[in-house]
């Protein structure tokens, strides 16, 4: 059983934890990424699936997919992302004097190509996760409105009617 003092203390701590936890977030839509990280990741994802007459990776919500999973099924990749995104940005600064997010599409392409060779572990992670988000189920935040499936000509949701049969009419009706 709790004593009254313990109860008050616990309530106060829970309240404080909530306040701190929420204040830290500062109304970003991300659960894991910081805003600068999100901008860098967006630049990389949009090189992997760029926009043409169909949306790019970030336009289809791929960042939401990756961010959500980084605090869920991809938890073990948190450090790889932190480090990889930082390295990518540093590389861009070194080569072009610009943040990766601020670089031109050509410059971004050059940086992503460089990462593919220099840091294949991180590149493979982002490539795989980007393609999963873009071509996977919309429920996970990527492939918004099933846009990639529509691009491939797949009806979503597909039309599937019921079978009209009658088990009382014999074995095979």
């Amino acid at each position: 059983m709790f004593t009254r003092r313990q109860f008050v203390a616990a309530s106060a701590m829970a309240g404080a934890a909530l306040a701190v936890g929420c204040a830290k977030r500062q109304r970003t839509p991300w659960e894991f990424l910081s805003e600068p990280e999100a901008r860098t990741l967006k630049a990389i994802c949009d090189q992997i699936v760029p926009a043409d007459d169909f949306p790019s990776a970030s336009q289809a919500g791929v960042l939401t997919y990756i961010d959500r999973q980084l605090v869920r099924h991809f938890r073990s990749y948190q450090e790889s992302y932190r480090r990889g995104l930082q390295q990518a940005n540093l590389l861009s600064k070194k080569r072009f004097g610009l943040d990766l997010a601020a670089a031109s599409p050509q410059q971004q392409f050059a940086i992503v190509s460089a990462i593919e060779k220099q840091d294949p572990h991180f590149f493979e992670l982002v490539r795989t996760h980007t393609l999963q988000g873009y071509y996977g189920s919309p429920r996970h935040g990527g492939n918004r409105d099933a846009v990639s499936w529509r691009m491939l000509g797949l009806a979503e949701p597909p039309l599937l009617g019921r079978a009209q049969y009658d088990l009382t009419a014999g074995k095979r009706s």
Binding site: P138, D145, A146, E156, P157, L159
Partner: peptide
């Protein structure tokens, strides 16, 4: 409302 994805798909996007 698509139960599978638990989201709505607009009339314009449906087949």
């Amino acid at each position: 409302f698509d139960r599978r994805e638990e989201m709505h798909f607009t009339a314009l996007s449906l087949p």
